[in-house]
Structures are given as structure tokens and as C-alpha cells.
Design a protein around this nucleic acid. Structure first.
Lengths: 193, 193
DNA sequence: GACTTAACCAAGCGCTCGCTTGGTTAAGGA
DNA sequence: TCCTTAACCAAGCGAGCGCTTGGTTAAGTC
């Protein structure tokens, strides 16, 4: 049986946090591995003990981003049964996560998959995973016959994610934005033409 | 009077077209000046006869992008007087331009101002210039008292621009997307609560 | 206490980046 | 026809990039 020595202070999470922060605020190609190492107070070369390359870092952040977003949304929606309330709760959790909570989710939205061609397929897949969750909330809505639900979903996601560009802290809260967006969607579905 | 010799074949437009195409499809930092030169069939160093630096290229493309978008929207809206029809026409021109027409407008949406910190202020200003145009169409709508028009405008722009991410040719046409988005906005404004 | 190995550090390699520089060509004015 | 100059080309500089490599340290095993 081989000796398995595991040291306590593993700085892999520190590295991921640093990379997520920089990718989210500056972008992927605008961030160098030296930037990440400096923020994590580690030597640049040490990154490559934990990750195969820079793309690997991005992939790990994407995965964590999907997890945090999904967990936040599902927790917020769990206790509700009305589909409209569930949509608003999902949007609220989504907006709170990408605007206040964590850099990981911001990366998911800001850094496009084609930033890293070698792993673009996997990144697209991770995005789809989360979008599938959102899809379920839109599909559950009682909408008029013939409504293009996939187009509606794309509109909602676009409107919500755009907040990451224009939102500044101290203005409207994520909850207020979610409420207004959900209200608009609901109103458009129950209009008297 | 000095001799002013001006040669006919100035390839400055060729360079701008090449840069716009690459910035729009790959991003700003993902595109090298050598990539641009190669596509424009010019030597890398020759770029710097026409532009001070890479940022200068981006600025010129932003300016042209605003011009083309504004021209397209204003031309499409000109003959209409009903505010709802004007909104739909504006969205139709906007979507047709960023999805089919020109790479210049795509750059305006894809490349964030903070990609080039030294000229970020000017880029933000150019974006504002165009957003002011869109604002006028939303402000002209007959909406219920107390409607948050700026939030509505941000939702609309976000929903529309997101199409650049998901849209693939051969699916829904820009006109169809614009129609559906305008319809939704209108319905949400005339709902019976 | 000897040994193994996870978790690093220090140094730097090769490459590509944005950009500069000095020279060349040809269009047009006098 | 001579001269000026707009519009390039050819070559390469210095810096920063992603990543590698060989050595070091200390946590845990027996």
C-alpha cells in the first residue's frame, strides 16, 4: 500500500477564486496566468501543478459556475408551486447570483465558449445544461396557444443577462429587476390583444 | 503651395473591413494585428501608417458601426408615425443590421469598451449615442403610468442583442424576431392586469 | 527516524504580441 | 522632367505570453 501524503493547505480553491474574479471582470484573453498567480499569491508555474493549462482553469470555473447558478435557482424555486411565481423566483436567484453572489457565474455569461476553441464544445454543453433548467420554468407557464416558447426563453435570458453590462450597485436591486421582468412577461401572456 | 499627391488606391477601407470582420467573429484581444494585415493582404507594419495603434482601429470601427446602425434604423422608421410600428421597425432594422448586414455593428455589441481601457470612455460615449436613439422610440410609446421606461429599454436591448449569440442563419428571420419581440412588449403594456 | 510524495518555488524557453524604423514605389503638381 | 509625398514594404525590437523543467519543502506513512 503506497503512502498517500496529503498536505492540508491546498491552494487550488484560492487559484480558482482568483481566476474567476479576473475572468469575470477583465475577460479570458485579457487575463494572463501571471495575473492569476499574483492574485492567488502563488508562483506562475505552480498553476500547472493543479491544471493542465489555462483552458483547464476556465473549464473548472464554468463547471462551478453552472453548479452555483443551478443550486441558487433551484433552492429559490423549491418551495413554490405557481409557475409564474417560480419563474420570478428563478429570475431573482439568477440575477442575484450573477450580480452579487459569485464571480463564477459571471464568467459563465461573460466569457464566450469560442474564447477557448479547444474546449468550446464542453463550454457550450455546460451552458446548455443550465439553459435546460431555465427552459423548464418557461415551458411550465400557462401561455396562449401557439406561443413561441423557445424565443420567449431567449428573450428572457438576454434581457436578464444584459443586466451584467449595465447594472451598477446601489441602483435597482436584483430582486426588483427580476420582479419587473417577470411582471412584463406575465402581462404579455395575459393581454387582451 | 505644396504638392499634394494623393494616390488612388488607398486600402484603408480594406483594412477596416478586415479588422471589423475579425473583431466581430473572434473578438478584440483574440485578433492580432498580423491576422488583420493578412486578411487585408497588407504588411503588418503598414497598418500603422493609417492608424496610430490597434485601439485606433477599434475606435474607427465603433464610429462606423454607430453610423450604420443609426442610418439603418432611421431609414426604416422614417415613413411610420404610429409609435408601436416605429418600435418594431427600429428593432427590425437593428436585428437585420447586426445579424445580416455588417460586421461593424456586430463589433459594437460584441466588443465591450473595457477591452481597450485607454479609449473606453470614447467607446462608452459612442454606445450611448446609439442607445439615445433607441431610447426615443421607447419614450414615445403610450405606456401605463409609472412604467419604468429605462428598465424596459434595457430589457429590449438585451433581448435583441442576445440574438447575436444564439441566432443561426436559416432559422427565424430578423424580421420575425423583431415582430415577436415588439408584439410581446406591446402586449405587456396593454394587459388587463 | 527513514522514506514517499503532494504541493509548491525559481528560473527561463520559445513564441507571439503590438509596434517601430528605414527604405521603396509611384502618383500627381510645378 | 524633376520633385514632393502618400502609400506602402521588409525587417526586427522589446515585452509579455503560456507553459516547462528541475529542484525544494514539509506533511503524512511505516
Amino acid at each position: 500500500m503506497p503512502a498517500t501524503a496529503t498536505r492540508a493547505n491546498n491552494r487550488i480553491d484560492l487559484v480558482l477564486d482568483a481566476a474567476a474574479e479576473l475572468f469575470a471582470t477583465k475577460g479570458f484573453h485579457e487575463t494572463s496566468t501571471r495575473d492569476i498567480a499574483a492574485l492567488a499569491r502563488i508562483q506562475p508555474g505552480s498553476l500547472y501543478y493543479h491544471f493542465a493549462n489555462k483552458d483547464g482553469l476556465l473549464l473548472a470555473i464554468y463547471q462551478e459556475g453552472v453548479k452555483r447558478l443551478s443550486d441558487a435557482v433551484e433552492a429559490e424555486v423549491a418551495s413554490l408551486s405557481d409557475p409564474w411565481e417560480r419563474l420570478e423566483a428563478a429570475l431573482r436567484a439568477h440575477l442575484e447570483t450573477i450580480l452579487n453572489q459569485t464571480h463564477y457565474a459571471r464568467v459563465l455569461i461573460r466569457v464566450l465558449p469560442d474564447s477557448a476553441p479547444a474546449i468550446a464544445d464542453k463550454l457550450v454543453q455546460l451552458r446548455r445544461e443550465y439553459e435546460g433548467l431555465m427552459r423548464s420554468y418557461v415551458d411550465a407557464l400557462p401561455l396562449p396557444e401557439g406561443t413561441d416558447r423557445s424565443l420567449l426563453r431567449l428573450f428572457i435570458i438576454g434581457a436578464a443577462n444584459h443586466a451584467q453590462v449595465w447594472h451598477k450597485p446601489g441602483q435597482r436591486t436584483p430582486a426588483e429587476i427580476a420582479q419587473e421582468l417577470a411582471r412584463m412577461v406575465r402581462a404579455s401572456a395575459t393581454a387582451t390583444e
